[in-house]
């Protein structure tokens, strides 16, 4: 018998206030890779990963990690929420945010100690933010904030990572640094799933992609999935992206 997939979504359906936003998604990822989740605004990309992580309830379907329900493997799954989802004026410093990644291992009541602090500092170092450890998070640039979030995910020491738009509104340097760390994680044998909206970069960055528009349009190796027909189906009714779409398909062809 073959090993169960790293991640398997079966018939996942999600509704907000009785209105379905995601229909019958079936998706399985067998091996470590950089996996892009692509689609137009409001397509349910974020909802898809929130459903996988148990943050929003499923109306139907189930999600398995290594063939098990999430509750049995929480410590092996990491998450980077959208940057806009938190209050950056909150009284915490970069290092405090990264330390939150160690809370799951600590459990209730136990406080962070020296080992956690040193580890969190190492995680900040890995994303190039070692010098900003004691800065209040609101006084960092958008790209730096995103790298702090990534460092917190590294501190989770997970094997499967979900990232929600980690490259949106981020300066070029931070983008490079984030992408480098994500590639390293993939090379270490980890599965990295990334919600992404920019078609131009999707073709060159991801090993595999899923196209989502309230349902799963297509999933598989990037070069196969980002076809003109699939993109047209995903973005039908989104005329403003048709121009971009043409360029994206071209870019996809040029990528080896």
């Amino acid at each position: 018998m073959s090993a169960p997939p790293l991640l398997e979504l079966h018939d996942v359906t999600v509704a907000y206030h009785g209105r379905p936003v995601l229909w019958h998604v079936d998706l399985a990822v067998q091996s470590p890779c950089l996996f892009g989740i692509i689609g137009p605004n409001g397509a349910g990309k974020s909802t898809l990963i929130k459903a996988a992580l148990g943050i929003v309830p499923l109306v139907e379907g189930w999600v398995h990690f290594w063939g098990k329900p999430l509750d049995q493997v929480r410590g092996r799954v990491g998450y980077v929420p959208q940057r806009e989802s938190v209050d950056w004026d909150f009284p915490v410093r970069a290092i405090d945010v990264v330390l939150m990644g160690t809370y799951h291992r600590l459990g209730w009541l136990r406080r962070v100690g020296r080992a956690e602090r040193e580890f969190a500092q190492a995680c900040l170092d890995r994303v190039g933010m070692a010098d900003f450890a004691t800065r209040q998070i609101g006084r960092l640039s958008g790209g730096q904030q995103q790298r702090v979030f990534l460092a917190r995910a590294l501190a989770q020491q997970a094997e499967i990572y979900f990232l929600d738009e980690p490259l949106a509104g981020v300066d070029a340097q931070s983008q490079q640094q984030i992408f480098r760390v994500l590639s390293e994680l993939r090379d270490e044998g980890k599965l990295v799933l990334i919600v992404h909206h920019d078609l131009r970069t999707a073709a060159s960055w991801f090993d595999r992609v899923a196209l989502v528009d309230m349902r799963l349009v297509a999933a598989g190796p990037t070069a196969d999935v980002l076809s003109r027909e699939n993109l047209a189906r995903t973005y039908s009714g989104h005329h403003e992206v048709l121009d971009e779409l043409g360029r994206a398909v071209e870019a996809g062809r040029r990528t080896p």
Partner: peptide
């Protein structure tokens, strides 16, 4: 959101 994903 992060807390919920981590199982809290």
């Amino acid at each position: 959101g992060f807390a919920a994903a981590a199982g809290w």
